[in-house]
Simulated scan of single mutants.
Amino acid sequence: MRPHTPVGIVSAALWLPHGRDTAADAVAEGRLEARVARDLGHRHLPVAEDVSAPDMAVRAASEALGRSEAVAGDLALLCHAWMYYQGHDLWSPPHYIADQLGAHAALPVGVRQICNGGAAALELAVGRMSLETGVRYALVTTADRFVPPGFDRWRSDYGAAYGDAGTAVLLRQPAAASDALLLRSLHSAAAPQLEGMHRGNDPFARLPRDVSPVVDMRRTKRTYLREHGTDDFQKINRDMIRHVLRRALQDAGVRPDDPRIRLAVLPRLGAKVLNADWIPVLSALLPVPMADWGTDTGHLGTGDLAAGLHDVLHGEVLRPGEIAVLLNAGAGFTWTCAVVEATRR
């Protein structure tokens, strides 16, 4: 998808709580195997001790708005994505976030697409902005808090450890000269035949965690892979990474060997997964550095792509006219690639 009217990324924020759970402590206390800690490569994970997930989104959103000339009343759309429990049962987190910000003219929308939710929310926001002439500012937020005993941040999944965070990305259409980044393109693709990896053979439950007291994606993945093997998933994953990258670059009018491409930003997965399944595929197509910025955060649930945008902006890794490519994926499965260009320092 290439926006017909240029979309500016006005600002991006990543709010991390002060608490940390180190891999060394987790291994010493028997909560994590030493071998798995080495495979993950995360030194520590951010832990929100007393801040809810929606409140982390509010803090990130306030920061993003504070870095712009916009105010909450200017927002026409607020898309919030999340993966895990937000603190209440039959309740709408995006409406809470909009109210806390004072964004009472905004349409709040919730997005549930597991780890790719933030990327999906960004794509939906861009699509909505392109259809309505009155939409000038849109805000995309994500937030997840992976609290025990229902979720084990170190051991609930293979190849990823989960950190708590809130993110926010403020969009403007049409883009202004003062916007730091221009969203050149965004492309997503799915392989719904893989949804069983997060279902296994479990029956449909009557209520959350009725089948298992702890979210255990390892268990459902083992069940799925025993039946289907690993080859099909690995092939589909690699093919989809190539596909979304090529299509996003094509939509942006950029060749893979374009010297303006400065780096590719990886999802915040474990080092072993990135080195086996992501970096070889991307490196074969893009002769640029691969940025793994998840060492000190872990996987941020729905927030990886937005966190990557924040780090591109605040790390000042792009000169004007240079381009970054950001990759993401999530259960279901869905893959997304975004192409952004720096317009100014």
Rank of each mutant, 00 (worst) to 15 (best):
P213A: 03
V211A: 10
H187Q: 13
L225T: 12
V215M: 00
S212C: 13
K221D: 00
T223I: 15
P192L: 02
K221H: 00
D202W: 02
S188G: 11
D202L: 08
T230K: 05
G200W: 05
M197C: 07
A190I: 02
N201T: 13
L207W: 02
R222C: 11
S188M: 04
L186A: 10
D210F: 09
P208A: 07
K221Q: 01
V211I: 08
R222H: 10
R199E: 06
L186V: 07
V214H: 06
L207I: 08
P192Y: 05
F204M: 06
R226L: 15
G229C: 06
H198R: 10
H187A: 12
T220Y: 01
R218A: 00
N201I: 15
A191P: 07
E195G: 04
G196H: 07
K221C: 07
F204T: 07
P208F: 01
R219D: 15
D202G: 05
R209Q: 09
N201K: 12
E195F: 04
Y224R: 10
R222E: 05
L186T: 08
E227Q: 15
G229L: 13
A189L: 06
G196D: 13
H198A: 04
F204G: 00
L207R: 11
V214R: 15
V214P: 01
R206F: 13
A190W: 04
A205T: 03
D210Q: 11
M197H: 02
G200V: 10
R219V: 14
D216F: 07
M197E: 01
M217G: 06
V215P: 03
L186N: 08
F204W: 11
R206A: 13
M197Q: 09
R206I: 13
H187D: 12
G196L: 09
N201V: 14
P192A: 08
D216W: 00
R226V: 14
Q193K: 02
R218L: 01
D202K: 00
T220F: 01
M217E: 06
E227M: 12
K221E: 01
P213I: 04
G196Q: 04
H187Y: 11
A205P: 00
M217T: 14
L194M: 03
N201H: 15
H187G: 10
T223H: 11
R209F: 10
S188Q: 09
K221P: 00
